[in-house]
Every structure is written in structure tokens, then in C-alpha cells.
Design a protein around this nucleic acid. Sequence first.
DNA 1: TATAAATAGGATAAAATTATCCGAAATAAA
DNA 2: TTTATTTCGGATAATTTTATCCTATTTATA
Lengths: 144, 144
Amino acid sequence: MFSKACEYGIKAAIFIATKSYEGVRVSPKEIAKEIDSPQAFTAKILQALVRNEVVSSVKGAHGGFEIDVNKIKSIKLSQIVNAIDGDNIYNGCGLGLHTCDENHPCPVHDKFKVVRDELKFMLENTSLEELALNIKSGASFLKI
Amino acid sequence: MFSKACEYGIKAAIFIATKSYEGVRVSPKEIAKEIDSPQAFTAKILQALVRNEVVSSVKGAHGGFEIDVNKIKSIKLSQIVNAIDGDNIYNGCGLGLHTCDENHPCPVHDKFKVVRDELKFMLENTSLEELALNIKSGASFLKI
DNA sequence: TATAAATAGGATAAAATTATCCGAAATAAA
DNA sequence: TTTATTTCGGATAATTTTATCCTATTTATA
């Protein structure tokens, strides 16, 4: 469904959020360990999240990644996915046609529309807050 | 959502179905032209569809690809996707966890479940027949 | 100011996916 | 039986995605 980069990005953001609630900044090394991902590749993805203002970074000694606690509630899954994979997942044609809309639909246009509207709604209505709180409470897991 | 290979496979199957209604076998060359795909790569994908018994092939002169007209109604999109991409799209974990189920869910397990059940239902309930008939009637298109 | 600790980012490598090429095998028809 | 036509399948190449490495830059602190 999503790229590996996007999967890592989502998990990283959730972990950073949980640590930010504790007022703690985290390094790519800690993040990679916690979400079971390749460290250097994860660092690249973090850069994309910083550029898209999903997470913020502090350079230099005692630096690391964090998310403004007041922002966590308003960050939606869609922002993270968009920052890494773009909006192609729920905007592009399911069969890769360049022109695909109501007037010139691909064979599965209507069928896919239902699924993708559902996906879009889910991504736009799932906050980083609820995902992070479920990790903190032990209701869900970031690895294995 | 799906791989390029899968997109080509779906479009190829639809085109073969439309021609099979006319009792005509088609070559990879014709198929690639009609669905705007790379010919040799499309031929490989056709082999996978043959192995998975979605389409049948006739070798030698006057050969080509066809689908038993009586089978077209019973072939579902899920079979085509499964033949090419496997069942990972609607069975694998949305965040790539090896172990992800009700007892040990990833952070988005429940959220994704809704979307993927919708996707699974759509794939399993969309027949090649309806897709092919919409192409024949001009209600949908295979390229551009 | 010097040093150590971090992120940023370019260069490169590995792996997977997408795409091409060519000869082998099968088959209809001359 | 030969020939032309067609799918099959292995080898290879190109591209994209995933992953690693190394240096530059930034910043807190001694």
C-alpha cells in the first residue's frame, strides 16, 4: 500500500510523538532501533518530515528530533504520507492512466473511488495523537 | 496501490475478454498497443496470467491469448491481482510488521482494516465481465 | 575558543521492479 | 516435411527504491 519509506516515516513520527510527551528528543539511532528500520535511511526520511514541518529538529549537541506537543493532536496521518509518498495514493488513477476522471474513466474508476475515498477519509481523520497514545498504553506496537 | 505489472495485467485481461467475446485471439503486440504498455514486459505478465489460469494461450501459428467466454463472468479482479502481486495488498500489515493481528496490532491496524476490507470486497466482487462490457460500450477506457 | 555531539546532505551501493532481447518450443498451413 | 507464426522462458539491461557511507555544518559546553 505504502512505500517502505512511508512505513518508516509513520512509525518514526509515532515514536517521536511518544517521546515528545516526555519532553525528550530522540536521535535517528534510537528511532531506528525502536521501529526496527535501517538507521541512515530513516535519517533521510526524517529530513523529509522536517522539511514538511511534521517534526522539528534541533542540531548540535543535545539535539535530536521532537514534535511540538501542542501540534501532535492536529497532525494527521495524511500529512505524513503526503510528505513522503505524495498524494498519488489517493489521487492517481488505479490503473495508471494519465487522464482518468468522471468523463474519461478507467475500467475500475468507480470501484476504486469508493476504496480510495475510504482511505483518504481514514488518513485525514487519524491523528498522530491517538496513534501515539495507543503505543504509550501498550494497545499497539511499533515492531516485530 | 498496485504494481505497474498488475496494472498492465488488469488492462490486458480486460482487453482479451472484449476480444474473446468476438471469438478473436490476440497477440502481446496487439495487447500492448491497445493498453499502451511495453510489449515484452506485457508478454511476461501474460505468462503469469496463463500460469494462474486467468487467461489461456494457444501457441503456434494463429495462436494468441483468449479467455473462455463462459468463464469471463466468474473471473474476479482479485484473481488477477493475486496472480501478479500476490495477496499482500489486503493481507500484509500496513506498516510492514511481520507479526500484526488483533493480539499484537500495529498502530494503524484497525484503521487500515476498514480500508482493506473494503478493497478486498471490491476486488472479490468485481467481475471481468462487467469491466469488459463497459469497455465495449464505451463507458470506460483502457488508455490515455 | 576548542571540542564533542548532533543533524544535513551529497555520493555511492545494493536490491527490487520494470523493461528488452533472443533463442527454444509448439503449431497451423503450404 | 518444411516454413512461417506464435508463445515460452532464460539472460540481460535500465530504472526506481531502498540502504549505506562520509563529510560539512550546527550547537552546547568545558
